[in-house]
Amino acid sequence: MVFATFFQVLSENNARITIHLKNDLAIEGNIQSVDEYLNIVLSEIDVVNNEENPYLLSVKKLLIRGNTISHISMPDHGIDTDTIQELAMKDMERK
C-alpha cells in the first residue's frame, strides 16, 4: 500500500501530475483521489498534445483505471518527500 499512500498524500496536496497511459495518451490533471488499485481521479484535466488527441475535449473530471496506467510524472518541487517517506516506513513496519 506504499504507493497508494504516496498518491493519497499527493491528493491531499492537490498536486498536478501527468499520467501516461498504456494506450499512449498522456493526461495532466489535479489529483483528487486514489484507491487501492491505483485507480486515480483527476480534475481540470488536459490531454497532452490536445490537437492530435481531441478525445476528451469536454471532460474536466476523469477516472483512470489503475491497470491502464503506464507511468506517472510529477514536478519534484512542492512535494513533501519527507512525509511520504515517513508514511512509507510506517507502512513497512506494520508488515
Partner: peptide
C-alpha cells in the same frame, strides 16, 4: 475500461464535432 470522464455540457454544446478529426 481505460478511462471514464464526466462530460461538462456547457463545454460540449460549444464544440463543433464536424471540425474534430483524429
Amino acid at each position: 475500461i481505460a478511462t471514464i470522464g464526466k462530460i461538462e455540457m456547457d463545454i460540449e454544446e460549444d464544440i463543433d464535432y464536424n471540425q474534430v478529426k483524429a
